[in-house]
């Protein structure tokens, strides 16, 4: 009987492969049939994850403490938007569902996702808490599907296109923090991918 750890199934076409060990970070394994990427040969992935998630946590804090945009419609009439304030305002207007939904997909889920990924990489680096690392990775995987800060970021730009004729727009610290946070998120979940992190967990413990 073949050891399941040494097998890979292509996520695109379902072909079965035998896992081979890659020796250099430049190498990657691809599907023999459809050429889909299966995994890469990372070195010290846990350190990369640790530094990226730590940076992301700082950026997330900044993105929530400072205003994202400030607008000036002339005559000294200004307005600024802090994400949590905007959600609270929506709630006060009686839009319970949208404000709650926004709170979850823009604040709670992104924070817990990155926090658990941070814990995961910390556990892997320390080489302890096998079960804790697994739990953290499960949480990160489930919640990352409901992470919509990237869409919100594009929405900010769309909204600015709608009002740029009437107001002077100033992007705040939180805007740039959010941009880099989204960038890190995309790198972690779209480039490195969760399956690679699971492979790391399997190799280390």
């Amino acid at each position: 009987m073949e050891d399941l750890k040494n097998l890979v199934i292509c996520p695109r076409c379902g072909s079965l492969h035998k896992r081979i060990k890659l020796s250099s970070p430049k190498e990657s394994a691809r599907c023999w049939r459809c050429n889909k990427l299966l995994y890469r040969g990372y070195k010290g992935l846990e350190y990369q994850l640790l530094s990226f998630t730590f940076t992301a946590l700082i950026l997330f804090t900044l993105a929530n403490l400072f205003p994202i945009v400030e607008i000036d419609i002339g005559g000294g009439v200004k307005s600024r938007m802090v994400l949590l304030e905007a959600l609270l305002f929506l709630y006060k207007q009686g839009f319970l569902f949208i404000s709650l939904f926004g709170l979850l997909v823009l604040e709670v889920f992104p924070l817990i996702t990155i926090l658990s990924l941070f814990l995961f990489s910390l556990f892997v680096v320390l080489g302890t808490h096998k079960e804790g690392a697994k739990k953290a990775l499960i949480v990160a995987g489930r919640l990352s599907e409901w992470n919509m800060l990237d869409i919100f970021f594009i929405s900010i730009l769309v909204a600015m296109v709608k009002i740029y004729e009437y107001a002077y727009i100033d992007f705040g610290v939180a805007f740039w923090s959010m941009a880099f946070f989204v960038g890190i998120e995309i790198y972690l979940f779209r480039y490195i991918k969760l399956s690679q992190m699971w492979d790391l967990w399997e190799q280390k413990f």
């Binding site: 607008i71 307005s79 869409i151 900010i156």
Partner: peptide
């Protein structure tokens, strides 16, 4: 990505609440 419409409304509501002009979400947004 279809949620862009909803998020744009959220951004506009969060920004534009002056004495003279203000934006409030509608039932359609929910």
């Amino acid at each position: 990505w279809s949620l862009i419409d909803v998020f744009v409304v959220m951004v506009l509501v969060g920004l534009i609440h002056f004495n003279s002009v203000s934006v409030i979400p509608g039932v359609g947004a929910t």
